[in-house]
Design a protein around this nucleic acid. Structure first.
Length: 859
RNA sequence: GCCCGGGUGGCGGAAUGGCAGACGCUGAGGACUUAAAAUCCUCCGGGGAUUUUUCCUCAUGUGGGUUCGACUCCCACCCCGGGCACCA
């Protein structure tokens, strides 16, 4: 049976018209799909539409039409262009995410996640884009606080009830499984994901708040005021901090809370500076949102007037509020160790906090775990004048019984001790947040839940799926969700009690659609389930996924998350959906990526109109290796066009002469053609019998050498540009051998011309099909296998070997291929150029690489 | 600041330790043509010697190193692009 091969390009969002940037993406995928098909794989190469989304809704409002109309028109355009470029998609498997047949399964998945607590609702501060009038996921907030689609618009913070998917439940797996992808995914994508998930291994430590003289108003924290689970319910007068450097705790000169930390108000209440500090706090809360660039903002803060106790040494530590501490990360509170942290150092320097040294670099000559040469006393003196913090690992000093330990050991011991004594806990935290999927928009998947006055939140039963979008919404682009304004949609009966109820009016983030769409291609018309697990088991994981680097985090992280959820639901057995990922470079014009807003697009249709689709295809393959950005050049396209014409002319010229000859097999081989298989096939079968002429030998050699290299370039690292260069060389050689009817028999001529055709077939299918027919074939190229390399014919009879003396080329000798070192030496020393450099010297060493080079080392 | 990429002719790029610049673009010259387009052929990194044949030499961001031999491997640095960024 044929092995499967699933090659997929990221599905497009159908907006506007397609440009050559799109075409490059699909061309790469199509070449791979066609090559694999020719090599005997059962290839899945589908196409679909990421059809939900905001631009459709905005365009509908602007043009007074329906988002569906706008979207489907675009899909029609896209389809036309893709067909024109001859991409070998299996259109029977086409999907469109805005169809109920598709999005009902988004709802189905949502219900399964709801059952398992993966989907949940919470009131939270959300990112609100005033231009989109909707909530954005953390991943959609860019440049430190701007909307990913309106890069000039700052995201606002709002408190809204939102649906979330618990991506954080998979933080560890999402991070760990990246190891499986190493080598098969681009390093930078893995690095970006790793960075995004952001694991920190450290510990939480609880600092007891010291009660002031007045015992009456010890700060109390009600559990619901701090995010659930963060604060030990019993430890109401404790501050919890997170640190990755517990070994530096003896150097903590302050506890610093985020301005939005719920304890802050309680702490400053009743202190002498209360009024002043409350004013300051209000300022900081505002400025932390408005500051142009939060990352570079100057350190600011104030002393609350209260103290906490360092559980390790019982020292009193002042409690501060600082603008550089983030509520969202860790516990929203830190211990400031100025001597060993950049930010703490800056903060302490500004506000005059002490900077005690508790870690020193290991001195040279200092052995193992022994104390470094510096004493606690000296360290104390040193620390006061330090100009910069020492943030590396070293040896603990000034740290009680831990002094002298290596930082790594101190971290381990101190964390263990803290845990044993009940004032701390080892903890790993992640930067990754849960995925907020609620959108207050129309053109998306309705979230399938109902709110009943009596029963509360009730999931829509599976039998009532899909929850259809209302056909004729009122779209204004403002205010609450358009679905909320449609009484027919909103007012429903409770599925449980039949009483009056209200339907959820938010829709899902469109990244939900694209998180699992590739599974649907394997079983696109299933109306019982999102897909048949057996079919998914056959096709998955995707052998090759191709798309832009823009989706390195969002789409790919969500897809990986979705796969793990489906695995836990028992739908799939694999951990990762995508075995290999390829990120192609952008097509640029004037140094920037093609985009409609920049007005620098080269339209796919106009390109096809002017030069033909094949020229467009081969140009994008030839101009640069696929992973690199490609600067569009009108002149270079002429070159690609000229080349294809050159090929056409030479085949046309000789077609009559060779048509009747036996050609390449039209049987597509069963199973992949391995190297072994190629060798066992009769390689000379297609070459005319009898001794070849010199001219024939040269042509055949060049042809099979080209085939060798082109095969490698297609299978290996996708060097399409050098594959094309190789075919160009072959075509040049054919021209140089003209007139072909003299000294080249028709059978040989046919073999060479057919090889050119077959090698071009994956890249320029239209041209190749026409040439194939001209060469006398009735069956289309679809039925043809990748040609077998004839190793014998590819071999050189003679090779020119450069002769080096002390590493410099001093001459060249021509010898029969496979000549021994002695034979080459004999010829080389006779070469006058070489001899001149050998004269009067002693030969010390000779390095010989057969058929490659000879290096004579003299002294 | 941290993490990824990448620096080779006028330009896009080739060369996975073995002749640096394949192939293409641009440019120059020639053939064909009444002419133009198209097409075909030749040349095209710098410097020097020789002058119509070739030889020498310098060149793959910079400086070191490993090696008989380095665009390629190692170390340090410079520049460009991208991602993350007060993440404790």
């Amino acid at each position: 049976k044929k092995p499967k091969y699933y090659v997929l390009e990221m599905l497009p969002y159908p907006s506007g018209t397609m440009h050559m940037g799109h075409m490059r993406n699909y061309t790469i995928g199509d070449v791979v799909a066609r090559v694999k098909r020719m090599r005997g794989f059962n290839v899945l190469h589908p196409m679909g539409w990421d059809a939900f989304g905001l631009p459709a809704e905005n365009a509908a409002i602007k043009n007074r039409t329906h988002p569906r109309t706008w979207t489907n028109n675009n899909i029609g355009e896209f389809q036309r262009t893709l067909r024109r470029f001859g991409f070998s998609f299996d259109w029977r498997r086409e999907i469109s995410t805005c169809e109920p047949e598709y999005y009902r399964w988004n709802q189905w998945f949502f219900l399964r996640m709801l059952e398992r607590g993966i989907a949940y609702k919470k009131k939270s501060r959300v990112n609100w884009c005033p231009k989109c009038c909707t909530v954005l996921a953390n991943e959609q907030v860019v440049n430190g606080g701007f909307c990913w689609r309106h890069e000039d618009t700052r995201v606002e913070a709002r408190e809204i009830e939102q649906w979330f998917l618990k991506t954080t439940a998979y933080s560890e797996q999402l991070l760990e499984d990246l190891k499986q992808l190493e080598g098969s995914w681009p390093d930078r994508v893995i690095a970006m994901q790793r960075n995004w998930i952001g694991r920190s291994i450290g510990a939480k430590v609880w600092f007891e708040v010291e009660s002031e003289q007045s015992t009456a108003d010890s700060p109390q924290l009600k559990s619901e005021e701090k995010n659930a689970g963060r604060q030990d319910a019993g430890a109401t007068s404790k501050i919890e901090i997170f640190t990755t450097r517990i070994d530096t705790i003896y150097g903590a000169s302050a506890i610093v809370l985020a301005p939005t930390h719920p304890l802050v108000a309680l702490l400053i209440a009743g202190t002498p500076e209360q009024a002043k500090n409350e004013k300051k706090l209000a300022e900081m809360k505002v400025s932390s949102v408005k500051t142009e660039d939060i990352a570079t903002a100057e350190k600011d803060g104030f002393f609350t007037g209260r103290y906490a106790v360092n559980p390790f040494n019982g020292e009193k530590v002042p409690i501060w509020v600082g603008n550089f501490v983030l509520l969202e990360y860790g516990t929203g509170a830190i211990m400031a160790v100025p001597a060993h942290d950049e930010r703490d150092f800056e903060f302490a320097s500004k506000f005059g906090l002490p900077i005690p040294t508790v870690v020193t670099p290991g001195e040279i000559g200092n052995k193992g775990d022994q104390r470094p040469a510096i004493s606690d006393q000296e360290a104390k003196k040193e620390s006061q004048k330090a100009a910069a913090p020492f943030t590396d690992y070293g040896y603990s000093v000034n740290s009680g019984k831990y002094s002298g330990l290596k930082s790594e050991d101190a971290i381990e011991r101190m964390a263990s001790d803290a845990e044993a004594q009940g004032f701390g806990k080892k903890e790993t935290i992640f930067r990754l947040r849960d995925w907020g999927i609620s959108r207050q928009r129309y053109w998306g998947t309705p979230i399938p839940v109902i709110y009943c006055e009596k029963d509360g939140m009730v999931p829509v039963p599976d039998k009532d799926l899909p929850v259809l979008l209302p056909a004729n919404p009122k779209l204004t682009g403002e205010g609450e969700s358009p679905l909320a304004t449609d009484p027919e949609f909103v007012n429903v009966k409770c599925p449980k009690c039949g009483g009056p109820a209200r339907r959820e009016s938010d829709t899902m983030d469109t990244f939900v659609d694209s998180s699992w769409y590739f599974y649907r291609y394997g079983d696109p018309h299933n109306d019982k389930a999102p897909f048949d697990p057996a079919k998914a088991a056959y096709w998955f994981p995707i052998d090759q996924y191709i798309g832009g680097i823009t989706h390195a985090i969002l789409h790919l992280l969500y897809s990986r998350f979705w796969c793990k959820v489906m695995r836990d639901l028992g739908l799939v057995k694999h951990d990762e959906p995508i075995a290999r990922l390829f990120t192609q470079g952008m097509v640029q014009k004037g140094g920037v990526a093609m985009s409609k807003s920049r007005g620098n697009v080269v339209g796919a249709e106009e390109m096809a109109e002017k030069y033909g689709a094949d020229t467009g295809r081969i140009y994008t393959l030839f101009a640069a290796p696929p992973e690199k950005d490609l600067e569009w050049s009108e002149e270079s396209i002429d070159g690609a066009w000229r080349f294809l014409n050159r090929v056409y002319r030479v085949v046309e010229k000789h077609a009559d002469r060779v048509r009747a000859e036996k050609g390449y097999t039209t049987e597509l081989a069963e199973g992949p053609q391995s190297a072994q298989r190629r060798e066992t096939q009769d390689p000379g079968a297609r070459t005319a019998p009898g001794a070849p002429t010199e001219k024939e030998r040269e042509l055949l050699r060049k042809a099979h050498q080209s085939l060798q290299r082109v095969t490698q370039d297609f299978e290996g690292r996708w060097h399409f540009n050098s594959a094309i260069a190789q075919i160009m060389e072959l075509v040049n050689a054919i021209y140089a051998a003209e007139p072909l009817d003299e000294g080249v028999r028709p059978a040989v001529q046919k073999e060479v011309l057919e090889l050119v055709t077959l090698m071009l077939a994956p890249m320029t299918p239209h041209l190749a099909e026409e040439l194939w027919e001209m060469l006398g074939h009735k069956d289309g190229l679809w039925t043809v296998a990748w040609p077998a390399i004839n190793e014998e014919l590819a071999k050189e009879d003679e090779v020119e070997i450069p002769v080096q003396v002390n590493g410099r080329v001093r001459g060249r000798v021509t010898v029969p291929a496979g000549s021994s070192q002695d034979e080459v030496m004999k010829k080389a020393t006779a070469d006058p150029g070489v001899a001149a450099h050998l004269a009067g010297k002693t030969i010390r060493k000779v390095i010989f690489v057969a058929d490659k080079m000879l290096n004579i080392v003299v002294g």
